[in-house]
Design a protein around this nucleic acid. Structure first.
Lengths: 188, 188
DNA sequence: TATTGTTATACTCTATAACTATA
DNA sequence: TATAGTTATAGAGTATAACAATA
């Protein structure tokens, strides 16, 4: 078998494994949030509102990678349950700002832990160092996949956007591998 | 910030990055296959038939993680285009074996390279070592996510006991696997 | 009675375009 | 005219349950 053939197969293997892990993980996480009656998108909206404060629907749509039409539906559902409210912009009445209500905040408070518990449970299979490595490898893929905004998703307030694994190295209870992916080598 | 808090945020970060990378990658790969008029599931069926030979619909459903009802629809579409054909099992007439036709094989031949090109292009962002590491980390996650069938990889069907960072320095040329293209396309 | 595959239904997501109201 | 949001529609994907033919 040729060298190129083999490399190709390795790439396919990495891809399919990545896909399978991501899909099973998200299934498990969504299941954890489901009892609260929140879809992943709805949760994302609430979370974004919490971290950014009131924003326009379009901004939400962009942040979460949905169309404005989808965002209308998502907000509709959240508004119907009283978790967000809409308010026209005072001066430019084309805009609608979406606000998180107290109820919405409460839902988030009770949902977020269930969600992150599920995520932590999955990620517990990896050591702290491995988690960081996984994130870094994925971020690297995102450089090709999403060159635009490959610098932070819907990050929480304090963005530690700089290269991770450097800050306080004593936060993980498991083996902190010192040989942390020092490479970050030459693209191409 | 507490130790647990931080660990939690790291887990969330790893999770969201994984999800984003997987979803953008699959979008890109599906786009590469789309011109051929094949959905990911349809491609998966053809590929499975190629590597395993004729199988029952239920076997296909299990292999690809779809319900038998879904599989009926998928096979319907493929059969309508003449890429597979159904045939009742001779002795137990409840079973239907699905065969890849010559046309189906031809479609696969012209589609598979486009698909794997797309995957290789994405994975080219990583070094060979990083690709292997990514696959290994994901497979590790699958141990919790899918304990059943988390065995089938390309080069370590047994070695899961040791910790990484040590392996994959060498090229094990060979591993002539008959089941090339075991790519199990992911649910979206 | 159990199993294979089909049909029917319903609900979610996604993708688009046409529409409104504002600017 | 351009933009923000809404509505309508159509297509996939998913999840069930009821059903027919076969065992």
């Amino acid at each position: 078998m040729s060298k190129g053939e083999k490399k190709r197969r390795r790439a396919l293997d990495a891809y399919s494994t990545l896909q399978r892990a991501a899909s099973m993980a998200s299934a498990q996480v969504e299941q954890a949030v489901h009892p609260f009656g929140l879809s992943a998108s709805q949760f994302g909206v609430l979370e974004t509102l919490q971290s950014r404060g009131p924003v326009h629907q379009q901004e939400l749509a962009e942040a979460l990678g949905r169309s404005k039409a989808q965002m209308t539906a998502i907000i509709d559902a959240l508004e119907a349950r009283g978790w967000v409210r809409r308010e026209r912009h005072a001066t430019d009445r084309r805009f609608i700002s979406v606000y998180l209500t107290d109820d919405g905040r409460a839902v988030l408070v009770s949902t977020a832990p269930a969600r992150s518990d599920a995520i932590v449970a999955i990620m517990a299979e990896l050591s702290g160092d491995q988690r960081a490595r996984l994130a870094r490898l994925c971020r690297r893929l995102l450089r090709v996949l999403d060159p635009e905004q490959s610098i932070e998703p819907i990050d929480e307030s304090h963005a530690e956007a700089h290269d991770d694994a450097a800050d306080d190295a004593h936060d993980d209870d498991e083996l902190d591998d010192p040989a942390v992916e020092t490479t970050l080598p030459s693209p191409t």
